[in-house]
Amino acid sequence: MTAGAATGQAARLGWPLVWVGELGSTNDLARLLVGAGCPEGAVVVADRQTRGRGRQGRAWASPSGGLWCSVLLYPSADLPQGLLSLAVAVAVAETAEQFVPGPARIRWPNDVEIAGRKVAGILIETAGAAVVVGVGINVGIELQVMPPEVAARAGSLHLIAGRPIERRAVLEALLARLADRYSAWAAGGEAVSDAWSSRDMLRGTPVAVLHSGPAIEGIAEGINREGALRIRTATGAIRQVVAGDVHQICGPSDPSG
């Protein structure tokens, strides 16, 4: 329905670029741009978000110093979209590693962590034929401005790198990595699965997935073709989880457990 809807090949991301001082949420403005007929690759950046959000309406702290952005994509409708969420996580992890030492790992489905601290969050929404990819990266955030429960497990790239980092440079790196991983996803996704799996921080660890109803507990065993988390339960059965909160739990050999 959208003229020139891209299939992901050689995607160029970053035009038009809308950079504003303060917004409710970059995803919300990006959705308005969809309605206005904005093309694939449009990007919205805000210095601050007043209503940044995570899953289930949780607030996502978005003070000055972070890179809060949304990218507009028009992927082909017949592609497996769940894996796109994981492809974005790979792109964000690769971006972070261009600025800090140490591997960036991914907590299913798409939280990016460095040295056990979450440095980025991703929230993706469809809007008609468009997909709005919201990415928040803690580039230069002083953790004391974050809510205490967030600061306890959050990290910021500048603290890990030990030097100031330009948000503009991170944005440019992100758009390049995202274009690359988006193309790889559109081309079949195996490269995305492999790259994601090499950063999988839950693999082999005991996890509990909380949702309505009883928690699913077992050992995380990577992802399936669609990007669902595979969990081997005590009976040996594999459960495939697509949603819910995943928590690492202490194993019986852990003396602190």
Partner: peptide
């Protein structure tokens, strides 16, 4: 409605 999978919210 919206259905979420892999933190992707599908209208």
């Amino acid at each position: 409605c919206v259905i979420e999978a892999m933190k992707l919210f599908n209208e």
